[in-house]
């Protein structure tokens, strides 16, 4: 969108694309200016590739039991050793990445969509709408998020869908808050006023003119909250509320490893390190991005 006269002759579809890509471009620009976010992205991409290629690069099937080789330490046959049932830990780690990333990505996507919607609507309309929506968010925030997730999963039963619902629900209020405050400022700006005088609908103003402007902040928080989501999923699996065994999950592996901690400390250590790497990479990514976008916010974590 370099010259505004050009903008007027564009097709409607093209206009939408430009408005949305402006928001994304800001994010990418911020991203390039920060070295640590590159390190974070690199680490994270390694995990993504491992998860995608799990079925090709795993030396064994993650569920096959080699009973004669149970509780082995790291060796040439089993690079990271075997667990209580004689399953290869490295293969289980690779497959476990899939569950962590899948649940993390899905739950944060849901939280971003629902949270931004609530936040933008609350900020745009103000008044009673704002009061009711944000009070509801505050009530949800009055629970420690892990406890809320724990109770919901325990009630609904541990499946991928229910885990996504539970984790997304704990992350909706923060995204609503993040989306609301810039909306309050942007809705007073001239271009919104101009849009209104042109007869644009509220939905159009919110979706195409306000949302792209607050997108960078939301996406940055998204990477930080995805770190939290992966940590919460692992915590729930550790408590025994994760995706059901024998599906390998990192939290579940730590749970099994912890039960046999005296026989093989590595059982709990390897998946623990895997979680640490993913969460750290996302934190590094989000932290660097946030530094670039808003120096004032520096240092405050998602949790």
């Amino acid at each position: 969108m370099t010259v505004s006269t050009d903008f007027r002759v564009l097709t409607r579809k093209r206009k939408v694309a430009i408005l949305l890509s402006n928001g994304l471009r800001e994010t990418i620009k911020a991203f390039n200016s920060n070295k640590t976010s590159w390190v974070g992205l690199g680490l994270f991409m390694i995990v993504v590739v491992v998860a995608l290629l799990a079925s090709w690069i795993s030396p064994y099937d993650p569920i096959d039991q080699h009973i004669s080789n149970r509780l082995q330490g790291p060796s040439d046959d089993f690079l990271l050793g075997t667990d209580y049932f004689g399953r290869d830990i490295l293969s289980r780690l690779f497959y476990g990445a899939r569950i962590s990333l899948l649940i993390g990505l899905l739950s944060i996507t849901v939280a971003i969509v629902v949270g931004s919607f609530i936040g933008v609507v609350a900020g745009y309309f103000g008044g009673r709408v704002d009061l009711v929506l944000m009070q509801t968010m505050d009530i949800l925030l009055a629970f420690p998020s892990l406890i809320l997730g724990l109770i919901i999963v325990a009630m609904l039963g541990p499946s991928i869908t229910n885990l996504v619902i539970a984790i997304a629900l704990t992350a909706v209020p923060p995204f609503a808050r993040i989306a609301r405050s810039p909306t309050l400022i942007i809705k007073e700006r001239e271009f919104i006023e101009a849009g209104r005088s042109l007869g644009y609908s509220d939905a159009r103003l919110m979706g195409l003119h306000i949302l792209p402007n607050i997108l960078p902040e939301i996406l940055v928080m998204g990477s930080l909250w995805m770190a939290t989501a992966i940590r919460v999923e692992a915590s729930l699996a550790f408590i025994g509320l994760g995706v059901k065994p024998p599906t390998p999950t990192w939290g579940g592996m730590i749970r099994e490893g912890f039960e046999n901690i005296l026989d093989g400390p590595w059982l709990a250590v390897w998946p623990g390190l895997a979680i640490l790497v993913v969460v750290f990479s996302l934190n590094l990514l989000g932290d660097g991005l946030r530094d670039a976008i808003d120096p004032k916010l520096r240092g405050e974590g998602a949790e």
Partner: peptide, 18 residues
Amino acid sequence: SLLGLSFPAFVSAILLLL
């Protein structure tokens, strides 16, 4: 400090225990 913030509470607990 970012690394410390990335620890799930049970992983740090298990490492200390070990």
